[in-house]
């Protein structure tokens, strides 16, 4: 066992208004907000929208550093976007590095587009930061629920997502154990060229697959033994219920978003 399982996913446990908000409302607001970002056509408004990030972080009681961390995998693309715009937008010359010319308009565009990209990621990350994976799949099942009328297996897909998420930490810790066990009999996972190293993972992967299949089998049996029959007629421990606070958030959120979008035509 090691700590990897603890750091899995982005969820930041805390008690905040955003954490207790109905996950469906969160998903819808996030979708609306991200769409709104694409309507913004003005750098000043974009910066203003950016100010929502620290506000949301404060409301959600998530440390700023934790929020910013969500940008890390995107850092390279953000920087690339910025520099491509800086150097490849025609306009008044600002500075030149070799054959590349930076322009004033380019600087503006670069800031605008990388900010847009960054904000889309940051805003959507607030959903995963404040919602457990299980709540999230519940919300997805609820939102897509009407599709059951068209015989789409909404419940089954949501259940599969939940089970998959639930077993990621289990698989990680098992992989860790098997790796140690194979190391104990001389396996080497670290050295050698790429083919040798790929081959060295066979003693890890085969036992891991075997136990994953066995576990899936056992889980299916255990669920059937307890009479699990899927979506129809199933009751829930945590029923998603829209409360007054959810409505307030939804209306307030949509109003702010409408304002952001409206500026496009007002100014």
């Amino acid at each position: 066992m090691n700590g990897r399982s603890l750091a899995l996913g982005q969820y930041y446990p805390a008690r905040s208004a955003l954490h207790t908000l109905d996950p469906r409302v969160k998903l819808l607001l996030m979708l609306a907000l991200v769409t709104a970002i694409f309507f913004i056509n003005n750098l000043a408004v974009m910066v203003a929208a950016g100010l929502l990030v620290p506000v949301l972080a404060t409301v959600a009681k998530v440390p700023y550093s934790w929020v910013i961390r969500g940008l890390r995998p995107l850092l390279f693309i953000l920087i690339l976007t910025f520099f491509i715009h800086v150097f490849f937008t025609p306009g008044a010359r600002l500075a030149a590095i070799g054959p590349l010319t930076a322009t004033r308009a380019g600087l503006r565009n670069g800031a605008f587009y990388s900010l847009r990209l960054g904000l889309v990621v940051l805003f959507s990350s607030f959903v995963t930061l404040t919602t457990t994976p299980v709540q999230l799949t519940d919300a997805i099942e609820s939102i897509f629920g009407p599709l059951k009328k068209f015989r789409l297996p909404v419940h089954e897909v949501a259940l599969m997502m939940t089970i998959a998420l639930r077993f990621i930490p289990t698989l990680l810790s098992e992989a860790e154990t098997i790796m140690q066990a194979q190391k104990a009999r001389g396996a080497d996972f670290e050295s050698g060229h790429i083919f040798k190293r790929a081959k060295s993972f066979v003693p890890l992967l085969i036992p891991l697959f075997i136990s994953a299949f066995r576990r899936a089998d056992e889980l299916a049996l255990a669920m059937e033994a307890r009479g699990y029959a899927g979506g129809e007629g199933r009751t829930r421990l945590h029923v998603l219920k829209v409360r007054a606070a959810d409505v307030v958030w939804l209306i307030g959120g949509l109003a702010v978003i409408a304002l952001v979008v409206g500026v496009r035509w007002a100014v």
Binding site: A181, G186, D188, P207
Partner: peptide, 28 residues
Amino acid sequence: VGLVFQEPEKQLFEMTVEDDVAFWPRNA
């Protein structure tokens, strides 16, 4: 030092018993 883990049968992976037991000598 040789360490036998809990439920060590979970680490078997070769096609035959002989190959699995010979994993260490061949690696070493």
